[in-house]
């Protein structure tokens, strides 16, 4: 059976329309994927929080943005070192799980405890489960309000409710390393008990956040 010119034109038009739809679908899918990746990498949409008129968050911020904490709460997967938070020597990366890359895990150099004093002040420190914080918990180069909003939100604080947050500060061995860093490393501005008390006071006040 032979098709008429009109039928061929109609068939071609349908094919072009189908092709257009496929191109648009691919573009939309690409945009959606890009958007999802961007959403994962960028700061979370800030949630509302009570105003921190009593400045209850500032003591907490001063601790978690001290080098011993913030050097492992980074957005780019590159651990930081020293009090000036310079990128880790040797082009070290945290990898997909924050525990290093294939063939060079963090545990290659960082054991479960600090090295002997005889190794000197700059040998790699150690604590159980040495790893970078998840990207959702980035604190490096982030404003106080953003950190506060992340800390309030279980989607961005490692799924922790208030009790689990207190536990994180009070009992986590890797967090505790920040107060026993070994070598000549500086300490956070508050002690661990002072920090836990500050977190408890902040939680009791419904986790207020500074305006910026």
């Amino acid at each position: 059976m032979q098709t008429t010119l009109k039928q061929r034109m109609a068939l071609m038009a349908r094919r072009i329309a189908l092709l257009d739809a496929m191109v648009i679908a691919v573009l939309l899918l690409g945009m959606a994927t890009t958007s999802a990746i961007a959403a994962k990498k960028q700061a979370p949409t800030p949630a509302a929080a009570p105003a921190d008129s009593a400045q209850l968050f500032e003591p907490i911020r001063s601790v978690i943005q001290s080098p011993r904490c913030v050097n492992c709460h980074v957005a780019d997967g590159v651990p930081r070192q020293f009090d000036d938070s310079r990128p880790h020597a040797q082009n070290v990366h945290g990898g997909a799980d924050g525990k290093g890359v294939t063939g060079l895990a963090c545990s290659t150099c960082h054991y479960t405890q600090n090295p002997a004093a005889a190794s000197g002040p700059h040998a790699p420190p150690g604590a159980p489960n040495w790893h970078l914080a998840p990207i959702e918990m980035v604190w490096y180069d982030v404003g106080a309000r953003d950190i506060c909003l992340r800390l309030r939100d279980p989607r961005h604080n490692g799924g922790r409710d208030p009790a689990a947050l207190v536990h994180h500060f009070a009992d986590d061995p890797l967090v505790g390393w920040g107060w026993q860093p070994g070598g000549a490393r500086s300490l956070p501005p508050l002690t661990r008990p002072q920090t836990v008390a500050a977190v408890q006071a902040w939680i009791a006040a419904d986790m207020p956040c500074p305006l910026q």
Binding site: Q90, N91, V92, H93, V101, T102, G103, L104, T108, C109
Partner: peptide, 8 residues
């Protein structure tokens, strides 16, 4: 992969 793993 090699560059990252051998960088140490």
């Amino acid at each position: 992969d090699i560059d990252l793993a051998m960088s140490g």
